[in-house]
Amino acid sequence: MPAAVPLPVGVPPTGAGPSPKASPRPARRRAATAAVVLAAVCALAVAVLLSLAIGARQIAPSVVFDAVFHGGGGEDGEVVRDLRVPRTLIGLMVGAALALSGTVLQGLTRNPIADPGILGISQGASAGVVLAIAFAGIHSLLGYIWFALIGAALATVAVYAVAHSSRGGATPVKLALAGAAISALLASVTTGVLATRSATLDEFRFWQVGAIAGRDAEVVTRIWPFLLLGAVLAISVARGLDALALGEDMAKGLGRNVAAVRIVGGAGATLLAGAAVAVAGPLAFIGLAVPHMARRLVGSAHGRVMLLGALIGPVMLLGADVVGRIVFPPGEIPAGVMTALIGVPFLVALVRRKEVPA
């Protein structure tokens, strides 16, 4: 009988199963991710229920369910259906949009403190609204949406054009610098118009503070196509952003078209942030904080971060909105104020933990 030929160390015999040490880690990671996502879904369900039930008029959960699913509930049911359901839907859509946009922008610029303001998106939307009020005679939220979207898109194109026209192309540093320059320019234009037109200032300040109250179902029907398209574009570049995180040269070596990733991702982020800002105003810190929270929980893969961020973002926005309703009843603090109050401690903690590179 011939002697058995020894196999190299670490190579299992023919027919042997996989090494017992090879599979547990990915399995544990998938199980942990599934548990986190399930917890986020539960938190989102609670946030939605609180948003529908809590306000100047407290409504029992049983009445909320009856109003939403059976059209009953009397006067309380009408409050839920006509006022709080549109408000909650706006919170869901805007929170998810800002979280996805922030995730994409942080991946594109490889900048951990990037948010929808990094490419001038928020300032572009603000300038569009101010010009619409001052010179186009637009005085309704539905009218603001189009001008805010156009302003956000033009600002993003201008930032990319400035960065791309320089030697070496649109690198992350150049994108950030161009975004800061365009944002400063648009902010000065906005301030100049507001300083000379007091009536415009009175109307603009209610939009600028950031809120999801006072929006009706028609607003939802106007913005969901933009948000859907933006989400599809953002999700489509998730693997490209994973490759880009390794460096531009490495991404090209892996076969990724870096320019296409930046264009498609930038377009998706602009649609998401532009539509969100157009409807709710420039809400602070959601696009910055939520991606970091998601990475801490599920790792750095952009697909998982986008999935969890799309759940955490609405939880954060709806939670801030609910807290704003109950702090000084019967009055309300706008959600934009509350998100800033929540975001500042988070940013301080982020710096103290040295998660932002020097």
Rank of each mutant, 00 (worst) to 15 (best):
A213F: 13
A289M: 15
A269H: 01
V64C: 03
I90M: 15
P314R: 01
I133Y: 05
T221K: 04
G15D: 12
A134V: 13
V173F: 15
A32W: 08
V159Y: 11
A47F: 09
K174C: 10
G247V: 12
G107L: 10
G230W: 01
T14G: 12
V157H: 09
V348E: 01
F206H: 04
L50F: 13
E218H: 03
A273R: 02
P8R: 01
E332D: 15
F346H: 06
A99L: 10
A3Y: 12
G17L: 12
R81H: 04
L201E: 02
R84S: 07
L49A: 07
A195C: 06
V9Q: 14
R29Q: 09
V104C: 09
G253R: 07
G10A: 10
G303P: 00
V80F: 05
P86V: 10
G274W: 09
V159T: 04
Y144Q: 05
G287P: 07
I286D: 01
G10W: 09
G266V: 11
N111A: 04
A231C: 05
T88K: 03
L201R: 01
G128T: 00
F226A: 06
L254S: 14
V209Q: 10
M250K: 13
V264H: 07
S198A: 02
G319N: 06
T109A: 15
L49C: 03
A43S: 05
V80Q: 08
A217V: 10
I54Q: 03
L185N: 07
I59F: 02
T339S: 04
A60N: 11
G117D: 06
Y160V: 11
F328V: 15
V277D: 03
W224Q: 00
